[in-house]
C-alpha cells in the first residue's frame, strides 16, 4: 500500500465531504442538527459504526460472495448499530432520550453503505480504517457545524431554525457556499497550472 493512497484516504473527509460534496446521510444531518449536542452525539455514533463496519467489511471482502455483498454489508452494519444502540441506552441515557429514535436509522445512513461499496469492499484494512476515520470526522464536522449555526440562531430568537424548515434553509445555504468555495479553489488552481505551464515552455 503506497503512501499516496493513504494520504488520499485521509483527506477524503474534507475534499469529498460526505455531507456537502457527496450529499449522503442528509436525513440524519437535517433531522438531528437542531442542537449542537444532538448533532455531535449522533455524529460520533455514526462515525463509530462507519469505522467498525469499514474495517470489518474490508477484512471480509474476500469471503463475502459478490452477488450477496449488499445484504452481507447491511447485516454487518446493523450488527454494529445494535451494539451502539444498546451501549447508548445503557451508558448515555440523556443522549438516548434525545437521539434514541435515530440510532437505528444509522443502518440506512447512505454514508456507511456508500463507503462500504465504494471503498472498504475494494481496499485493505488499514486504508479502510483511515478512510472510515476521515469520512467519520468529515461527517461529525458537517453535522456539528449545522448544529452550531442552528442552535446559535435559535438562541438568538429565531425559533424556526430549530424546526425542519430552518434546517433545510441553512443546509441549502451552506451547500451553496461550499460549492462556491470549491469552484473558487478549482479556478485558482487551474490558473496557477496554466501559468506554470506557459512558464515552463518559455
Amino acid at each position: 500500500m503506497n503512501k499516496n493512497e493513504l494520504k488520499k484516504a485521509a483527506l477524503g473527509g474534507l475534499l469529498q465531504n460526505p455531507v456537502f460534496v457527496l450529499v449522503l446521510g442528509t436525513c440524519p444531518t437535517l433531522a438531528m442538527s437542531g442542537t449542537l449536542a444532538n448533532a455531535f452525539g449522533l455524529g460520533v455514533a455514526t462515525a463509530f459504526v462507519l469505522i467498525c463496519s469499514n474495517v470489518f467489511i474490508s477484512l471480509l471482502r474476500k469471503v463475502i460472495p459478490d452477488r450477496v455483498r449488499l445484504p452481507g454489508y447491511i447485516v454487518i452494519i446493523a450488527t454494529f448499530v445494535t451494539v451502539v444502540e444498546l451501549a447508548v441506552a445503557k451508558f448515555f441515557p440523556a443522549l438516548n432520550e434525545s437521539v434514541g429514535v435515530f440510532i437505528p436509522l444509522i443502518v440506512v445512513n447512505c454514508i456507511i453503505l456508500g463507503r462500504a461499496e465504494a471503498y472498504a469492499g475494494k481496499h485493505g484494512a488499514l486504508p479502510s480504517l483511515i478512510d472510515g476515520v476521515s469520512m467519520g470526522l468529515g461527517f461529525i464536522a458537517a453535522i456539528s457545524l449545522l448544529g452550531l449555526i442552528r442552535q446559535g440562531l435559535t438562541l438568538a430568537g429565531f425559533g424556526v431554525f430549530s424546526q425542519s424548515a430552518g434546517g433545510f434553509i441553512i443546509f441549502g445555504i451552506l451547500m451553496a457556499l461550499f460549492n462556491l468555495l470549491i469552484d473558487t479553489v478549482k479556478r485558482r488552481n487551474r490558473r496557477q497550472l496554466f501559468r506554470a505551464g506557459t512558464g515552463g515552455k518559455q
Binding site: V23, A165, G167, I169, F171, G172, I173, M175, N179
Partner: peptide, 16 residues
C-alpha cells in the same frame, strides 16, 4: 453555486 441541490433545499425549507 446555488443551482441544483442548494436551491432545492431552500425551496424545501419554504415548503416546510
Amino acid at each position: 453555486s446555488v443551482q441544483g441541490l442548494p436551491i432545492a433545499l431552500i425551496t424545501a425549507g419554504i415548503m416546510a
